[in-house]
């Protein structure tokens, strides 16, 4: 058992305790958490900095506003409703279209307006928020993902998670929804995580709850060797998130829209650790390297160059 721990440490695998003690606690000042925990503030912050985000249609702050929901959504064929303080992708409802008065979710289920309202009430009541405090519901643009992912995606929207340490992207993965994940791009819900070569933006192997995978379980297509478009832009947005929030250890979630290109979806101050499995690499060696050279990396281009030089598959 100790040998196992020793070998994992040699590989630089980060454990939860280590992440909490030496990364989130040490590099993420608590006072900046609201910037990322509240998706509304993240959005405002990004817009102010000129970073593209999915357009916000409206915010439901309290119960009485729910009755205006049909009015607000009158002209919208498709949209996303998500809790402002949600975590782990919970409480996100993606409406892909309409059928008479009903809404059709991305999974093809029909929802009556009452059911939609109930979902919003649950969000407002704090069902999905951290600590159960009352929350707001955001309605926003539904991302139409880039067709490059068409053959390796089951419903939902694939997104790109980039871990940024002190402004330097250190690891990235592509998250592909599956039938098991119900169209959600979260690994613990059954989505597939695919490692990405930071230097080129090409996908590596994938990991699901079952283990390492090379094909998408629902479409059967290979997930390896796919070049992610706009890779430079994705990395740039991720690196800029550091200055945006002041958080030293950050998970940046991005999506690729077929029309709008890269969009910043949300930020996470406590990003998960499965990204290491998807990349078959540990985070610790990379973060150590960044820490050693942090003085030499003042600007975003510097940091991107550093990341591409050191954290690619064939450096």
């Amino acid at each position: 058992m100790f040998r196992l721990a020793r070998r994992l440490a040699d590989l630089g695998i980060m454990g939860i305790n280590r992440r909490n003690a030496e990364f989130t606690l040490a590099h993420n000042p608590r006072r900046y958490y609201p910037l990322v925990d509240d998706k509304l503030r993240t959005k405002e912050l990004a817009v102010a900095a000129g970073i593209p985000v999915p357009e916000l249609y409206g915010v439901v702050q309290s119960e009485y506003q729910v009755r205006y929901l049909p009015l607000w959504l009158k002209d919208r064929e498709d949209f996303v409703i998500k809790p402002a303080h949600g975590s782990g992708g919970e409480g996100i409802l993606v409406i892909a279209g309409r059928a008479h008065t009903n809404f059709r979710t991305v999974a093809g289920l029909l929802m009556t307006p009452e059911e939609l309202n109930h979902h919003v009430f649950n969000i407002l009541g704090g069902l999905y928020s951290l600590g159960g405090q009352t929350d707001a519901a955001l309605m926003e643009y539904r991302v139409r993902f880039d067709p490059v992912f068409d053959h390796i995606c089951y419903q939902g929207v694939p997104d790109v998670r980039i871990i940024v340490f002190l402004g330097v992207p250190v690891m990235a993965m592509l998250r592909l929804p599956t039938r098991a994940s119900g169209g959600k791009a979260n690994l613990h819900q059954g989505a597939i995580g695919v490692g990405i070569d930071l230097a080129t933006g090409a996908t590596l192997k994938g990991v699901s709850r079952q283990g390492i995978v090379s094909e998408h379980p629902d479409t059967g297509n290979s997930i390896r060797g796919l070049a992610i478009p706009h890779w430079e832009t994705l990395l740039t947005i991720a690196a800029r998130a550091y200055e945006l929030t002041g958080l030293g250890y950050l998970g940046v979630d991005l999506v690729l829209d077929q029309d709008l290109g890269p969009l910043l979806l949300e930020l996470n101050a406590r990003p998960g650790l499965a990204i290491q499995i998807a990349n078959a690499a540990g985070l610790i060696h990379r973060t150590n390297l960044v820490e050693q050279h942090r003085q030499e990396l003042p600007t975003v281009p510097d940091r991107l160059a550093f990341a591409r030089r050191h954290f690619g598959v064939n450096p």
Partner: peptide
Amino acid sequence: GRYSGYRLLELLRFKVFLKEGP
């Protein structure tokens, strides 16, 4: 409170790294 080593069950989770070997 400052223990930053692996959790026991994490070892199971990350065991895939050792299967392939470095």
